[in-house]
Computed example of a mutant assay.
Amino acid sequence: MATRRVPEGPAPDPTVQRLRVRYAKRGRMRFTSTRDFQRALERAVRRAGLPVAFSAGFHPHPKISYANAAPTGTASEAEYVEIALTRRVDPARVAPVLDEALPDGLDVVEVQDADDLPGALADRLQGSLWALRLRADGTPVDTGAVDAAVAALLAAEELLVTRMMKKGPRELDVRAAVLGMTVAADQVPGVPAEPGDVVLLVTLRHTVPTVRPEEVWTALGLVGGTPLPRPLSTRLRQGPLVGDQVSDSLGG
């Protein structure tokens, strides 16, 4: 019988604390992929001198958990990761140091001790509030067409769009994921709209797979009958669902 190989040397130090980090993707950084961000965060953790915990085995890697990252091409004010540490640190002091170590546009919003928060991170991320900015591009967006498309989508019982998956095309029911959709009456913080733009606020339940803002836009085009400008999408909030609203806190 073959003998199982065991890595030489001492076992990695145990995890004694987990930090839950909320960060934003802004400006051109909305084009960063999940893997791009992972590499940037691992470099930033080293630069910040955080005592990150590592996995065991022949190829140890930092214990960093990523949950429900926004699609490439979208901005976000509410992305989350958890970082395991081998000694305790003050979360309030970590936030500015980690933010300084990240590229501009990947901005740390808040750092908390995960042990002070209820539930697992993935379980708490039940829904998202998105802002879909329909750009005027020289001609004001037809608000009547937008209102008609929104009303038609909300009136539908089912609205299927197709996503190409690794195993082939798959139909997703966008209507089942949409908990609410309105046209913003005022300027939305974090969304740099210009005169003539229309901003849609869309509350989405996290389904499996998660419906994306691009698929909401596709669905609006299907039911509205009039092509709408392709949106710039920003996630404003992500967290537990309270009725048909998304809480801005992962706390109690």
Results as ranks from 00 to 15, higher is better:
residue 158 E to Q: 15
residue 159 L to C: 15
residue 161 V to L: 04
residue 162 T to Q: 14
residue 162 T to Y: 05
residue 163 R to N: 10
residue 163 R to E: 14
residue 163 R to V: 14
residue 165 M to W: 06
residue 165 M to G: 11
residue 166 K to I: 05
residue 166 K to R: 15
residue 167 K to W: 05
residue 168 G to E: 09
residue 168 G to R: 08
residue 170 R to C: 01
residue 170 R to L: 12
residue 170 R to E: 10
residue 171 E to G: 09
residue 171 E to A: 15
residue 171 E to S: 14
residue 172 L to Y: 09
residue 172 L to Q: 11
residue 173 D to Q: 05
residue 173 D to E: 05
residue 174 V to Q: 03
residue 175 R to D: 14
residue 176 A to V: 03
residue 176 A to Q: 13
residue 178 V to F: 05
residue 179 L to F: 00
residue 180 G to S: 09
residue 181 M to S: 01
residue 182 T to M: 02
residue 183 V to D: 01
residue 184 A to C: 02
residue 184 A to G: 06
residue 184 A to E: 03
residue 185 A to P: 00
residue 186 D to L: 01
residue 188 V to E: 09
residue 188 V to W: 11
residue 189 P to G: 06
residue 189 P to C: 06
residue 190 G to C: 12
residue 193 A to H: 07
residue 193 A to N: 05
residue 194 E to M: 08
residue 197 D to L: 08
residue 197 D to K: 04
residue 199 V to M: 05
residue 201 L to S: 10
residue 201 L to C: 10
residue 202 V to L: 03
residue 203 T to K: 11
residue 203 T to G: 06
residue 204 L to V: 04
residue 204 L to D: 04
residue 205 R to I: 02
residue 206 H to Q: 14
residue 207 T to K: 05
residue 208 V to M: 12
residue 208 V to R: 14
residue 209 P to F: 07
residue 210 T to D: 14
residue 210 T to V: 15
residue 211 V to N: 07
residue 212 R to D: 11
residue 213 P to T: 11
residue 213 P to E: 09
residue 213 P to N: 13
residue 214 E to W: 03
residue 214 E to Y: 03
residue 215 E to G: 02
residue 216 V to T: 09
residue 216 V to S: 06
residue 216 V to F: 01
residue 217 W to D: 00
residue 219 A to R: 00
residue 219 A to K: 01
residue 219 A to V: 09
residue 221 G to A: 08
residue 222 L to Q: 15
residue 222 L to P: 01
residue 224 G to Y: 10
residue 225 G to N: 12
residue 225 G to T: 10
residue 225 G to L: 11
residue 225 G to C: 11
residue 226 T to G: 07
residue 226 T to Y: 10
residue 226 T to I: 13
residue 226 T to F: 08
residue 227 P to Y: 12
residue 227 P to W: 13
residue 227 P to F: 12
residue 228 L to D: 06
residue 228 L to M: 11
residue 230 R to I: 00
residue 230 R to G: 04
residue 231 P to L: 09
residue 231 P to M: 08
residue 231 P to I: 08
residue 231 P to T: 08
residue 232 L to F: 00
residue 232 L to I: 07
residue 232 L to C: 01
